[in-house]
C-alpha cells in the first residue's frame, strides 16, 4: 500500500519564548513491509541539529529554534510503501538487546489488577498465542474512549477506569507482557483510517512484544489486530514518553498551546 502522511504540529506560545529545543523521532526506519519513498520534516525558523540512529534503530534528529518566537510549526510529509507482515518486525537494524525491554516504567508497571488480567496466560507453551490472548483481554478490559485519559495516565489507572485510548492500550499490553517475562515496548506511528466504521486515530501507538521464535511482533489492542499495511512505524521506546515522536522544551515563561493534525491517505 502507498500511504501518504501529512502531519502538522503547531506550537503557539501566549508570549514569545527565547528559544526552543526539540528532539524528533519522526522518520520511519527501513524494514520489511516499510519502504520510504519520500520524507521531509521541516521546522519553521528551525536550525537542524545533530542526527543519529539510536540503539533501537530509530533516527533521532535534533532541532533548535532561536527566539524570540511565538509559534512553531513542525511539518512532516512523506510517502511510505507498506506491506502486511502480520505484525512481525523483520529486517530492522537495532542494537539494544530485547532483555532491556523488561525494564518497567511508572507508566507500564503492572499493578495487582493488571497482573490478575494475565492469570492463566501460558507464555511457556505458546508465546504467540499468549500475546494474542493478552491483547484480546486488554481490549476488552479497556474500552476505547477518547478524552477520559491523558498523556500521563498509567496502565494501571487506565485499567481501573476501564476506558482509554491507544496509548493506554499499549501501556497495558507492555505491562502485561513484561509481567509474564516477555520483553515489550511502545511503538509510535501512523495508521491509515480505512472506511470500516471503527474510529481510528491517524497518529497511533501500539505495542511490540519480543517472542523467542519470531522476534519483535506488533500488537494493537485498540484495533484488536496486529499491525498490517495500514501502519507506518516511526519509533519505539520503553513507554509513550520514551518513544515520543516529538520532545521539546521552550525557554521562557510562555504557556504553550498545541495543535496537531494528522492525515494518512492511501495513494494510487
Amino acid at each position: 500500500m502507498l500511504l501518504k502522511v501529512d502531519h502538522v504540529t503547531r506550537y503557539a506560545y501566549d508570549q514569545p519564548v527565547r528559544g526552543v529545543v526539540q528532539s524528533h523521532r519522526l522518520t520511519p526506519a527501513v524494514c520489511e513491509g516499510q519502504r520510504v519513498l519520500s520524507w521531509t520534516v521541516t521546522v519553521s525558523d528551525g536550525q537542524m541539529g545533530g542526527g543519529f540512529r539510536d540503539g533501537a534503530g530509530d533516527w533521532v534528529q535534533a532541532w533548535t529554534v532561536l527566539g524570540p518566537v511565538s509559534d512553531i510549526t513542525v511539518r512532516v510529509e512523506g510517502v511510505v510503501e507498506t506491506a502486511d507482515t502480520a505484525g512481525v518486525l523483520r529486517g530492522h537494524r537495532e542494537t539494544i538487546p530485547p532483555a532491556v525491554y523488561l525494564r518497567d516504567t511508572p507508566a507500564t508497571e503492572a499493578d495487582v489488577a493488571l497482573a490478575q488480567l494475565c492469570a492463566g496466560v501460558d507464555v511457556a507453551t505458546d508465546a504467540l498465542a499468549a500475546a494474542h490472548e493478552l491483547s484480546r483481554r486488554i481490549s476488552e478490559a479497556i474500552a476505547y474512549r477518547p478524552g477520559v485519559t491523558h498523556a500521563h495516565t498509567t496502565a494501571a489507572e487506565a485499567l481501573a477506569l476501564g476506558e482509554g485510548v491507544c496509548q493506554d492500550h499499549a501501556h497495558a499490553m507492555i505491562g502485561a507482557a513484561r509481567h509474564l517475562g516477555l520483553p515489550a515496548r511502545y511503538v509510535s506511528g501512523y495508521l491509515h483510517a480505512s472506511a470500516d466504521g471503527v474510529p481510528h486515530e491517524a497518529a497511533h501507538a501500539w505495542a511490540e512484544v519480543f517472542l523467542p521464535a519470531l522476534g519483535w511482533v506488533g500488537f494493537d489492542p485498540s484495533n484488536r489486530c496486529c499491525p498490517n499495511d495500514g501502519y507506518v512505524r516511526l519509533g519505539s521506546g520503553l513507554d509513550a514518553r520514551d518513544a515520543a515522536p516529538i520532545r521539546g522544551i521552550a525557554r521562557g515563561p510562555g504557556q504553550e498551546r498545541l495543535d496537531v493534525t494528522v492525515a494518512v491517505q492511501m495513494q494510487q
Binding site: D54, A56, T95, P97, A99, V100, L102, R103
Partner: peptide, 29 residues
C-alpha cells in the same frame, strides 16, 4: 553494545539491563 559478558552467562543480564543506573538512551553508542 552487544552484551557479550551477559550472553556468555558470566553476569546475570537482569542485574545490568534492569539496573536503575543502566541508561538505554545510550545503548548502541
Amino acid at each position: 553494545g552487544r552484551g557479550e559478558i551477559l550472553r556468555a552467562g558470566r553476569i546475570p543480564s537482569r542485574l545490568v539491563y534492569q539496573n536503575e543506573a543502566y541508561e538505554q538512551a545510550v545503548a548502541g553508542f
